[in-house]
Design a protein around this nucleic acid. Structure first.
Lengths: 336, 336
DNA sequence: TTGTAGGCGTTATCAT
DNA sequence: ATGATAACGCCTACAA
């Protein structure tokens, strides 16, 4: 055993009896009419035999590009972001790119890594649903940046890929109005983010203008327990009880349903509850949630496409991606 | 503007009026007694001013190590793996390592990338809960490999970090036996994986030996709908109805609860249902699930530690990580 | 059709 | 205490 170090293109060249340049040409796939079919085969055989895999660091250094994008998400635990990743990775793969995930440390400031937080060598950043200032310390190395589900009018002017969040909320509101509901509480995610601000504003704009309508709001963290507490507050507070709870996410809706049951209220007979996101949770609980389905994969795919365009100096972003109200069993006619 | 290319250590050196070597020493943090305090400060100032960030590709090339690990998971959507990642990333960060996620394309064979699927330059691989042969094409470039939640006796002899899965199942079985249950159906995940095989074997070993006990099994895919169908089969099949459903995951348990409700059975009065994983789903549904809590973060942390040890030629793996039965409302005394 | 040579940005070894 | 210099493995003109 003279050592089992990783074989280099030099080793492949030696075994195949050719030069490094030829190996690079063949393995790089750009040898049409530059290397004979025979030598090409020999090179490939040698490479296979040695188990050669090119050193990505060297390639990146030489090329100046890593063909890797960083996807920054606020929480890995959330099914939505997993789907965004899937969409982004798909498009990336088609272009020979990889996607690396960076779950932004919530609340806590950027990591104290002296050389910046993103450990991998990357060509660009896709940031999803980030709080206003959460990007400090991430991609301000002047890296190309695409924002997902974020304020299109934010300073910096990064290309944005957005969902029709407002339209989704509008559909929910109209659905509930049509069912005869007039007293609403908005269970709002207590996160300072474009997407949640938009939801609050839209609920207010849509329901505030209808005469005879009452709209309140309860803020809560994005977990079942907090949502439950908030829903209890909403349902036991002073004044007439709301007949519909509009929740900023399926997780919150699940908490709201638990609260209702705990108070002896039936969903949807006594109380309608709507969700947002259409996670698998929406159909896992009982009754199944009326919610808004988000094309998460499409968001990721469009985001990656936008980043690739940016890297090609062809910035172009399309319209908002449509969302769809899915009516299930958690909403029904307002009680008499 | 003469161009805003990324500044190199050379640029920093020029601005600070020193040599590249000095810059490297200072910024690398190993200059104690080799560079004067004054020049060190000058270098740091120049670096800050230029917004210098070292080129990771170059550093990796020079060092031969990337300080990056690849975490291969079967499904990103699952909360468990998100927590594993968190644990691994924490330990990694303490050692100046990064962690990159690779969601292995389920079922589908390894990607057809001629150079291997992992796009990032990595030092080692941590593979979690993988099907027997799913690793082909991932890390067999002779990369150091640690397996999580996998057969410790598998060929290849990679270090393994495991949960006490069998003990968890045993706790569930004993809990249900103590409640008087005698007719069980095991809702088994239909995945060819060590963790699921272990569960099946353990259920059989634990319940098969008790006189007067009946144990059946239904296999199903790992989603709510499949679980629901399987539970319906289990509850409506020939012979006396089981009084307890032991599910291979909380998601399956949720499906089982839906099936029960659909059949007019009350949980836990008519039917006890147990889960596994203790996802947030377990407390999101009603009744809350009796389930087995898994120290997912610890698994990730131990896995990363094992990989670091492997890279240091100090292979050492500890014992199985203990799991804990969490008794909630979905299990109760067997009906009379 | 193939080989030679230079450099990408960094760190480490050796001089000074 | 600091600077010159040589790799790391790869790609790509250009030369043969």
């Amino acid at each position: 055993m003279t050592g089992s170090a990783r074989p280099t293109s030099r080793d492949v060249a030696r075994v195949a009896g050719v030069s490094q340049a030829t190996v690079s040409l063949v393995l790089g796939g750009k040898w049409r009419g530059r290397v004979s079919e025979r030598t090409a085969t020999a090179v490939r055989e040698a490479a296979g035999e040695l188990g050669y895999r090119p050193n990505l660091a060297a390639r990146s250094l030489r090329l100046g590009r890593t063909r890797t994008a960083l996807l920054v998400v606020p929480a890995l635990t959330h099914e939505y972001f997993a789907r965004v990743y899937t969409g982004a990775a798909g498009v990336a793969a088609e272009h020979g790119f990889g996607v690396v995930l960076y779950p932004s440390p919530t609340g806590v400031g950027p990591a104290r890594d002296p050389f910046g937080s993103a450990r991998a060598a990357i060509d660009g950043v896709i940031a999803s649903s980030m709080a206003a200032d959460a990007l400090t310390g991430i991609g301000d190395g002047g890296l190309p940046l695409v924002m997902l589900d974020s304020d299109p009018a934010a300073p910096g002017g990064a290309p944005t890929v957005n969902l029709a969040v407002a339209d989704g909320i509008r559909q929910v509101a109209r659905h509930l109005l049509a069912l005869g509901h007039r007293r609403f509480t908005h269970l709002a995610g207590d996160v300072d983010t474009w997407t949640f601000r938009t939801r609050s504003q839209t609920v207010a704009a849509e329901l505030g203008v209808v005469p005879g309508t009452v709209l309140r709001a309860e803020r809560c963290a994005l977990d079942v327990a907090s949502a439950r507490e908030a829903a209890v507050r909403a349902l036991t507070g002073p004044g007439p009880r709301p007949t519909a709870l509009i929740c900023d996410g399926d997780i919150l809706a699940a908490g709201a349903c638990k609260a209702a049951r705990g108070l002896g209220l039936r969903v949807p007979d006594d109380l309608s509850v709507s969700g947002f996101d259409d996670l698998s949770l929406a159909t896992a609980i009982d009754p199944e949630l009326t919610t808004v389905r988000l094309p998460a994969e499409a968001v990721g795919a469009r985001g990656m496409a936008a980043l690739l365009a940016l890297l090609d100096d062809t910035p172009a972003t399309g319209d908002e991606l449509p969302v769809e109200l899915v009516i299930r069993a958690s909403t029904g006619p307002a009680p008499a």
